[in-house]
Design a protein around this nucleic acid. Structure first.
Ligand code: SF4
Ligand code: SF4
Lengths: 134, 134
DNA sequence: GGAAATCCGACCTATTGAGTCCTGTTTAAG
DNA sequence: CTTAAACAGGACTCAATAGGTCGGATTTCC
């Protein structure tokens, strides 16, 4: 349906929250979840994914939490989506996965034209960073 | 997940098929379904929706079928999506539906910035017509 | 040692997408 | 004037995904 998932939205909200304060400060998943009334467990997993992708850094232990690993203007929205969704934001299934995932791949006539939309969307999301959603 | 639905893809394939031949010719749902190996019943319903939106015209009866109601360059992809999905191609839920559909609407901080992506995407899809996917 | 945090996989459940079925109605052809 | 080929459309099933939850492990500060 061409809509961002809640996970991505939650991730963006969290990233924006961190971008508001100065660099180096750590935020716990709990405080972010409370502030925006997000489901804690879900947000935690999202932040873990962002950690693995080196978008944020985590410090464990009792005074731990998350902090941005890059400057806000360096974090592309497209990278965030890709990380949280485990794949690129793709307009058509056959672009996201293999050529053999779509049963009508051979007969399909709109594949190439959709590639054009794909590229446009991609540059749209690449040129947008966390800096711009503050 | 930011992906077009099969319905939309099938609709675009059908529209492109009709756009290939000259205007006025009618095509049955059956022949299109066979040609591209699409599920007949599903395609039929898609074409019915496109009919109600005056994107195609249908003629009933034994020699009936569907034909484009507009010239290919007049049919916007965004209109096709909107018709088949019953709504606009919206990046965020709160844009597509009311302000009260998202539980964190008030706390949400990324709503406005996403509006920017929204507008970009919209113009992208409006400027693309069936003519361009031939 | 214990509290507060991240980590991570397994699990559950509601919603949506994809597809099917069935019964109409329309209309050209024979 | 009957029949077959088409559209019209609601109801339904099935499968996949999204969204959310749980339980337990590990890390680290006090
Ligand atoms: S082959 Fe065509 S129908 Fe299949 S996923 Fe790609 S664009 Fe869509
Ligand atoms: S209010 Fe925010 S989180 Fe909710 S749908 Fe809109 S953009 Fe997404």
């Amino acid at each position: 349906m061409l809509q961002l998932s809640k996970k991505v939205e939650y991730g963006l909200i969290a990233l924006r929250h961190m971008a508001l304060k100065q660099r180096g400060q750590v935020f716990t998943a709990k405080e972010i979840a409370l502030e925006y009334d997000l489901p804690y467990d879900l947000l935690a997993k999202i932040l873990q994914k962002l950690t693995r992708a080196n978008i944020v850094v985590s410090t464990q232990g009792v005074r731990g939490g998350y902090a941005l690993a890059q400057r806000p203007e360096e974090i592309q929205v497209s990278h965030v989506i890709r990380t949280i969704e485990d794949e690129k934001p793709m307009i058509a299934e056959c672009y996201a996965e293999g050529t053999d995932t779509c049963s009508i791949f051979d007969a399909c006539t709109i594949r190439k034209p959709l590639g054009k939309v794909q590229r446009n969307l991609e540059s749209l999301l690449q040129n947008m960073t966390i800096q711009e959603i503050i």
